[in-house]
Write a protein that binds this DNA or RNA. Structure first.
Lengths: 229, 229
DNA sequence: GTATATTTTTAGGATTGGCTAAATAGATTA
DNA sequence: TAATCTATTTAGCCAATCCTAAAAATATAC
């Protein structure tokens, strides 16, 4: 029904509209043309073009000069793409042995293969994972996300133990850096000291004491461990 | 480097040129425009169009009104597509649990994801299979096919035991029919009687005696079992 | 060996999806 | 409020890939 190009626009609009409105909401926030152009590394004119096509297909609501938002159909499509993307990432990492910073572009290709049957079977084969290798939630077939307690590492008080559950940046340089400092999903981190001046912190990872910059800490998501009394 | 459309043309040309010249040969046989058009369900004019582009890219050799043949580059590309196609089919059947008649169209999509790394890892994950679920040989990374002794079921003499190793037809109706009569890859078949009039035969499958029409028998490939003395 | 039939190519056009440059609407500031 | 800046749209193009109809080349038949 929809082309690759259309699907990529839907994904971009979904992403931007979620960023505009972090809390999961029934409605889709309105995003400006320019933001889409930037996100997709294309010209604003091309965006206007495509948006008009998507609007004709009732995948987005569009009023000239007012920005775009996804219709329910459009959002469901975007969420299914996200589902496929993240399931493929799990296959690539868990089964094929790719590193977590190598799978994004491949999943970007694979997600466009449309087949509910394939998606279902992939999900089953992988054991219906709820999160992908970066800790992002995988929507289920109905488009529902699994919620989870998570905060940026910067929010932890000293002497708190926490488990890494996700990242807020997916760039290869960032993920490589995490590899270098021993941070990975499911690793335990214990905060020793916080420097509020620059949000950097001293932490304990695998028994090693390290300093993590604020820039990095802000992009690590953790789930605090309840303290044993 | 090459688009999806170009890749599909290369595959079609490869297929036709192999059919024209069954023995594996260094050279690629010349195929007529019309044959490609039929194979791809498109118009002859479109074929001429695309062939000119492929010729500009040195993927085919082309002389007006003379037909096309693949260059070495073109043939290598086609063989890599075949490799990916068949590896994906193995994944779909062996790991995801699809039936052998359900995987062709999906593999047709998946094969276009170009990544030597992905292909390699897929191959390793699947245990470097030499044949796909229909018994077709999977070329290795160097493009070499595993050869194997195989003959159409119609070639067997009565009282010969053989193992089904492949099919020469991939249509769903044909594969479904095989399912119905209990024929599957690796099944043993024992020929009891041959009727040369119409090539039909009485065979033993799983201890059950059945009649197989010539049309069906011709499309079943078997490897005769050496007779115990 | 010419007439006819078939195959192939050319010509011209549609659609998708991108671009640049120019025009216009909306937002910001003095 | 007027001037200016920015965001958005329009206009006009381009390339890829398909199409139909017509022309040209080749093959076949008498």
């Amino acid at each position: 029904m929809s082309t690759r190009a259309e699907e990529n626009y839907l994904k971009a609009i979904y992403k931007l509209s979620e960023m505009a409105k972090p809390k999961h909401d029934r409605e889709s926030a309105t995003v400006p043309t320019n933001a889409i152009a930037q996100e997709m590394h294309t010209s604003a004119a091309s965006v206007t073009d495509m948006i008009q096509r998507l609007s004709d297909k009732h995948l987005v609501d569009y009023e000239k000069y007012r920005g775009v938002s996804l219709t329910e159909t459009g959002r469901n499509l975007a969420i299914q793409l996200l589902r496929r993307h993240r399931l493929w990432e799990v296959l690539l990492v868990e089964k094929l042995g790719f590193a977590w910073n190598e799978v994004h572009d491949l999943a970007e290709e694979l997600e466009h293969v449309e087949s509910p049957e394939l998606t279902d079977r992939l999900d089953t084969f992988l054991g219906s994972p709820k999160f992908d290798p970066h800790g992002d939630p995988i929507p289920n077939a109905e488009g529902k996300f699994t919620l989870r307690q998570q905060v940026p590492l910067t929010d932890l008080l000293p002497e708190t133990l926490a488990v890494v559950v996700g990242v807020r940046e997916h760039s290869s340089p960032f993920l490589n850096h995490l590899d270098e400092i021993g941070v990975a999903i499911h690793k335990e981190i214990c905060v020793r000291e916080r420097f509020s001046y620059d949000d950097s912190m001293r932490v304990d990872i695998d028994g090693e004491l390290r300093t993590i910059s604020g820039k990095v800490a802000r992009n690590i998501l953790v789930k605090p461990k309840p303290v044993m009394k």
